[in-house]
């Protein structure tokens, strides 16, 4: 067992974990943040996307021990109380989900995308989401949601 210190959604955690434990399992099973889901388990689908020190990663492809000393933000850590993050609100407004399984990862990656590029073209949005698969929506409304959030200032600092 290895002792790790990780800040998850603003709260410090100290835990003993097996080195082989994947970050996504640590978040779900040990910290109880089940908003982050496992889709493919092969690092392809992006459903498990979280932010590690503010940058998006696939949490099924990171070990919990690699997050030692770092800060993780999950889909459960972006709203302000009952007030949704502008990206969550945009997904809601634009009907950017159907079954919703890809949504936690899609939203986390979309926020990362706008942090990098606050005013992306449609093409840049589609490329920025190339590591996130959606089997329901055909992506159209997801692109619209990211455009709405960009218009609301996500990535420009006014996103909350």
């Amino acid at each position: 067992m290895t002792r790790i210190n990780v800040k998850v959604d603003g709260v410090d955690h100290t835990d003993e974990v097996e080195p082989r434990m994947l970050l996504v399992h640590y978040l779900r099973e040990q910290v109880g943040r089940t908003g982050t889901v496992v889709g493919c388990d092969t690092s392809n689908c992006g459903a498990c996307t979280v932010h590690l020190d503010g940058r998006s990663v696939k949490s099924c492809n990171v070990l919990a021990v690699q997050a030692d000393g770092h800060e993780v933000t999950t889909i459960e850590g972006i709203a302000d109380g009952d007030r949704l993050h502008a990206m969550q609100q945009a997904f809601h407004d634009c009907h950017a989900l159907q079954c919703g399984y890809c949504t936690p990862g899609m939203i986390m990656q979309s926020i990362d995308l706008l942090n990098d590029n606050p005013n992306p073209s449609e093409d840049e949005i589609r490329h920025g989401l190339e590591g996130n698969l959606c089997r329901c929506t055909g992506y159209h409304n997801i692109v619209k949601a990211v455009q709405q959030a960009a218009g609301a200032g996500v990535g420009g600092g006014g996103g909350r």
Binding site: S56, V57, L113, G128
Partner: peptide, 9 residues
Amino acid sequence: VADPQIRHR
């Protein structure tokens, strides 16, 4: 290479 998440790691 790959996608943004993988390029971050």
